[in-house]
Design a protein around this nucleic acid. Structure first.
Length: 257
DNA sequence: TCCCATGTTGCTAA
DNA sequence: GTTAGCAACATGGG
């Protein structure tokens, strides 16, 4: 489920309620999630995002790396209710944090050193020249390249379609065929769209909810994703749906070349 | 019943 | 080495 804007939203909200707070108890409800080191009495020192991963630094030097995959969500609970599909519960003085995950794809892993990565993040200032170089001579569809977490981190299926539409680029084009000007446009659109989506606290197209169970609003701004057969916002041609690498891909055949 | 789903990994074959 | 295609993971909604 969550792509960069959704994970960023959770990180920002989590910082408000758990950073600097002591853990009173922790309980892995579904062991498929992963095993946790002892956390009771420790403090959450920081919550950062890299791509779609969320990384907590815990006092004493441990890091926890969360991957929410398709349906993982965090909920902050200040009463005794338990959301459905709860997989992990961590209690603080002010409330409980629940990781809920219907499809059970989410993972958490302890990690000893600080997590760092040379892969540029979609919210950072991407460098069009670096991207063009990484894509050079590659024939895979540019949409797959954008979603390759080893090329750029954080862009998933929804925002890939949106960014390509914004940049006017056909998602099936070989990644290596884009001109420097097209990479420049792509980087500008990625920054604009992802920033706006973060401001909107993500896209609630089916069931995404933020830490406080609120809906995001970016679904109201989606131009092509999920809009098969509807008129393109730019040229009124019909939006098409195709499948690339097994994933639904939405684009306008007239204004994306 | 079937198809679809905001993700990732691993295998096989071209 | 690169890429496409597929299955797997597991569950719920239309």
């Amino acid at each position: 489920m969550p792509e960069l804007p959704e994970v960023e939203t959770l990180c920002r909200q989590l910082r408000e309620v758990i950073v600097g707070r002591r853990i009173l108890s922790s309980r892995v409800i579904d062991p498929k999630l992963g095993l946790l080191p002892p956390l009771v009495g420790k403090t959450v020192q920081s919550v950062v995002r890299h791509g779609k991963q969320m990384i907590w630094t815990i006092s004493g030097g441990t890091c926890l790396v969360f991957q929410l995959r398709m349906t993982g969500r965090f909920f902050w609970m200040e009463n005794d209710a338990m959301p459905p599909h709860a997989r992990l519960e961590i209690s603080f003085r002010a409330g409980r944090l629940i990781l809920s995950d219907p499809r059970r794809f989410a993972t958490v892993k302890p990690w000893s050193p600080p997590v760092s990565s040379p892969v540029p993040d979609g919210l950072e200032k991407l460098d069009p020249k670096r991207l063009a170089e990484a894509a050079r001579r590659r024939r895979l569809p540019v949409k797959s390249f954008l979603m390759d977490q080893k090329a750029v981190t954080g862009i998933g299926n929804i925002y890939a379609s949106e960014i390509l539409h914004g940049a006017g680029i056909d998602p099936s084009r070989p990644a290596g065929s884009l001109t420097p000007a097209e990479w420049k446009k792509m980087v500008a659109m990625a920054a604009r769209i992802l920033r706006k989506a973060v401001e909107c606290r993500g896209s609630s197209i089916s069931d995404w909810r933020d830490l406080f169970a609120g809906q995001g609003e970016y679904q109201l701004h989606l131009r092509v994703y999920g809009r098969k057969g509807e008129p393109c916002a730019k040229c009124r041609s019909k939006v098409r749906r195709i499948v690339i690498a097994g994933r639904s891909t939405f684009f306008c055949p007239k204004c994306q070349k």
